[in-house]
Write a protein that binds this DNA or RNA. Structure first.
Length: 797
DNA sequence: GCCTGGTCTCTACCC
DNA sequence: ACGGGTAGAGACCAGGCG
């Protein structure tokens, strides 16, 4: 019989010495199915030395049969490696776990140049070779198997053919469970061996809410058992949380162990286990951690669940109280507050479900585009997402995936940034090169396989593109790997967008296609960065270096052409120039640049008025619709207190809209006055900074590290990548000696004068100094204040 | 011992 | 664990200064 199913998750098993690929999915009728494919063998390639007879290698492998019992068969194949034809022996193994070991032995065999693709997981080879696509539909010939396994599905099938991919946009109706936990700890970061789970809130995408609460004596065993049962009863396809990969799953698993129960929440009666890219796998379900997708939202500086939900409009922050982790025990112990804690926990579960609604289409599209199952694609770093997409495309053209090589890290020259013309300008147009680096790579055929290294025989000059400044050469023909891939991506995105235009923008298909074009764009734009990444399988530094060299060449030529056209250039960064807007001249420039270089540069936006400081990469513009576009300045930085950001934004607004520095200065002084009265919320004084390495590795003392140390003393363990929120308090010595984690500080300890002189005034002066207003003028009363303080200090000591 | 200027470290930004 | 270019704050340190 034939079934059609949508692929949710994949894993491998070896049963009775037969390797099996398990495909977990949902069929057209909405039944949960497991399709087991026993027909697929693990393999790797032994690439043959040039001029060596592959059959000798085959013989050699055969004669070593005793040492390599899992070699099932060999096959001589033609492939390409960095574009060059190679012969290889494809070595099939009866056990997926031995390929890497065998490959490393075979590398020493005579006539074998290298072994490849032993580092690609069995399941990934399966998906790629059969064009089986996660979050995609497939049809497959199957026979139904008796339901003898301990797996939670409606039906189990044995595949009689390879699944065949079917183009179909929309996903089936999934069952989704969002959950959020509360742990009880008075000793700092909760630890599963000593601290109980006191609340788990769960929400389903059907709107069902369930809350599990510990007993009065904080016995959490019944709670956990009830939660496990609930997951089993609801049988979700997707389990979604926030920070679950690095937190909850480990905690809950260990907590259950400690209580003598097993956290069996997957479809195979096993416990959660950590898998590739540090993601936690729940066999048969997709475990999605929304924190993995938070990077997509650069505007959200401090990645908390609340902030992300607020940003996505899921649940407006101002209407809901946030309870800090440190306060959980108080809220539990105080019976009057306990309901608030329960409410907060349930709101968090709802936030998770809301965010899921907002990003799930994108996640699914990214998964199917890249080819990694949805639970993995989020956890995979950008470089690996690009790489899996490349591996998938490589297979289609017979290109072998290179191994990751240890290579020395060396930087290279990047984009060109112009010095801005400081001050105010009216009517400025921004001209942007459309997808500059991808298009450069396509146009000049920059690719690992078209690169001609200096020690190779050199083709005649008319057959190569030579990058300016750096002089690297690339074959004009045939099309390189990157050209193929990038043209494909750009084409596909155009097709999707054309299709979208024919659809009702509220339709399901439109929404799915929009998510897909976003996923395509993300991968397209990340390809240049991938090309310059030392860790990349296809890393060839000259490829990335040539791309930026062409970029500089293009932008410099464009500036010259603009000037000749009579356009005044006031700024530019990498792929853009800012010019005094003159529609006809701009149009003519675009045309000429296209004619000369074959790349498109078009007006992106126009500023009614724009302001530059002396610094590059920092400016603020007024858009025709009245919105402000602020770039690089403190307003959009996460490591400045809100007081400074609020004031600077207001100053910018007054300057751009009313061109009145005096009014702006007056506002600043008024704000400072109120700040000194402590009329601004305490939260607006918090400064957030990321811990970028373990505290011990810092070469110099730093405020946020010191704040983290204070928290650690109290038992609150912070990890690399965590944001530390601190305030500056009154005291002596260096700044780092005067910081406190905000959750441990009170308003009356705060050193307001620090916020005046080091936050608000500098942020405001950054703008106002161009108009002749000094820091002193902004903090006029500072002098008096300072003297008073000095006097007070004097009297004290 | 304190101030000053130069350099280094650190973070977060732009594209 | 995708690239380089850049600003700005604060730590740190050597040298000046009777």
């Amino acid at each position: 019989m034939r079934i059609v199913f949508w692929l949710l998750d994949v894993n491998a098993e070896v049963r009775n010495e037969v390797p099996e690929v398990w495909l977990w999915g949902i069929d057209e009728k909405g039944e949960r199915v497991l399709v087991v494919d026993r027909s697929y063998l693990a393999y790797f390639y032994a690439v043959i030395e040039e001029g060596f007879d592959p059959s000798n290698v085959v013989e050699e492998i055969k004669s070593a049969k005793a040492e390599y019992p899992f070699v099932v068969k060999t096959e001589v194949v033609e492939r390409k490696f960095f574009g060059k034809p190679v012969k290889a022996v494809k070595v099939y193994c009866g056990n997926p776990d031995v390929t890497a070991k065998y490959a490393s032995s075979f590398r020493r065999f005579e006539g074998i140049k290298d072994c490849l693709e032993d580092d690609i997981r069995y399941t990934m080879h399966y998906l790629i070779d059969n064009n089986v696509v996660p979050c995609g539909w497939h049809e497959v010939e199957v026979t139904e198997e008796k339901h003898g396994h301990d797996v939670q599905v409606d039906k189990i099938f044995i595949a009689e053919s390879s699944p065949r991919f079917i183009e179909k946009a929309e996903a089936p109706a999934l069952r989704i469970l969002a959950f959020s936990t509360v742990y009880y700890s008075k000793e700092g970061s909760p630890k599963p061996e000593r601290n109980p789970v006191i609340v788990i809130s769960a929400v389903s995408n059907m709107g069902e809410e369930k809350q599990f609460v510990a007993n009065e004596d904080k016995n959490d065993k019944p709670l956990l058992e009830a939660f496990i049962k609930h997951v089993g009863d609801f049988d979700p396809d997707l389990v979604v949380g926030f920070g679950t990969n690095e937190g909850d799953w480990h905690y809950l698993t260990e907590r259950c162990k400690k209580l003598g129960i097993r956290l069996t929440v997957n479809r195979a009666e096993t416990e959660p286990h950590t898998s590739v890219y540090g993601h936690v796998s729940l066999t048969g379900r997709a475990n999605v951690d929304l924190l993995d997708f938070a990077d997509e939202f650069q505007e959200v500086k401090v990645k908390t669940l609340e902030n992300l939900a607020d940003y996505l409009g899921v649940m407006k922050l101002e209407n809901h109280a946030t309870i800090e982790d440190v306060d959980f025990p108080d809220y539990w112990d105080d019976k009057n507050k306990r309901d608030a804690l329960k409410k907060y926990s349930m709101e968090n579960a709802k936030r998770i479900m809301g965010i899921t609604d907002a990003i799930l289409d994108f996640a699914m599209q990214l998964s199917s585009l890249v080819g990694l199952p949805i639970d993995q694609v989020g956890a995979a770093a950008v470089g690996f997402r690009v790489e899996w997409f490349l591996i998938k495309r490589a297979q289609k053209i017979g290109e072998l995936a290179p191994r990751r090589m240890e290579q020395a890290y060396r930087t290279y020259t990047g984009g060109l940034v112009l010095r801005p013309e400081p001050g105010l300008h009216d009517n400025i147009a921004v001209l942007d090169f459309k997808s500059m680096y991808p298009n450069i790579m396509i146009t000049y055929n920059l690719s690992p396989d078209t690169y001609i290294s200096p020690n190779e025989p050199q083709p005649p000059p008319e057959d190569v593109y030579e990058a300016p400044e750096v002089g690297y050469k690339f074959r004009r023909e045939p099309a390189g790997f990157y050209r193929e891939i990038l043209s494909y991506l750009i084409d596909v995105r155009q097709q999707i967008r054309a299709k979208m235009d024919t659809l009702d923008s509220k339709s399901g298909e439109h929404r799915v296609l929009d998510a897909r074009q976003k996923a395509v764009k993300v991968i397209t734009n990340a390809t240049y960065g991938y090309a310059g990444w030392v860790g990349a399988r296809w890393y060839i530094k000259p490829v990335a270096e040539a791309a930026t060299a062409w970029g500089r060449h293009l932008i410099m030529n464009t500036i010259d052409m603009a000037k000749r056209e009579g356009l005044k250039v006031v700024y530019g960064d990498t792929d853009s120039i800012f010019v005094k807007s003159e529609a006809e001249k701009v149009a003519k420039l675009s045309k000429e640049v296209y004619r000369k270089f074959g790349l498109e540069i078009n007006p992106d936006k126009t500023y009614v008025r724009i302001f530059f400081t002396e610094a590059k990469k920092r400016y603020a513009g007024l858009l025709p619709d009245g919105r402000l576009d602020i770039v690089g300045l403190e307003v959009i930085r996460g490591d400045w207190a809100a007081v400074a950001k609020t004031v600077q934004e207001k100053v910018i607004e007054v300057i751009l809209k009313e061109q009145s520095p005096e009014k702006a200065a007056k506002f600043v002084r008024q704000y400072i006055f109120e700040l000194r009265q402590k009329k601004v919320p305490f939260h607006d004084l918090i400064i957030w900074k990321t811990l970028t390495k373990p505290p011990k590795k810092y070469a110099v003392k730093a405020s946020h590290v010191e704040a983290a140390r204070i928290l650690a003393e109290k038992g609150w363990k912070l990890d690399v990548g965590d944001k530390v929120g601190y305030v500056v308090v009154i005291g002596k010595g260096r700044l780092y000696e005067r910081v406190r984690p905000y959750i441990l500080a009170s308003y009356d300890q705060v050193d307001i004068e620090y916020y005046v002189s080091k936050q608000v005034v500098p942020a405001a002066a950054r703008i106002l100094e161009s108009f002749g207003i000094t820091e002193e003028q902004l903090s006029a009363s500072k002098v008096v204040e300072k003297d008073t303080r000095t006097l007070a200090d004097f009297l004290q000591s």
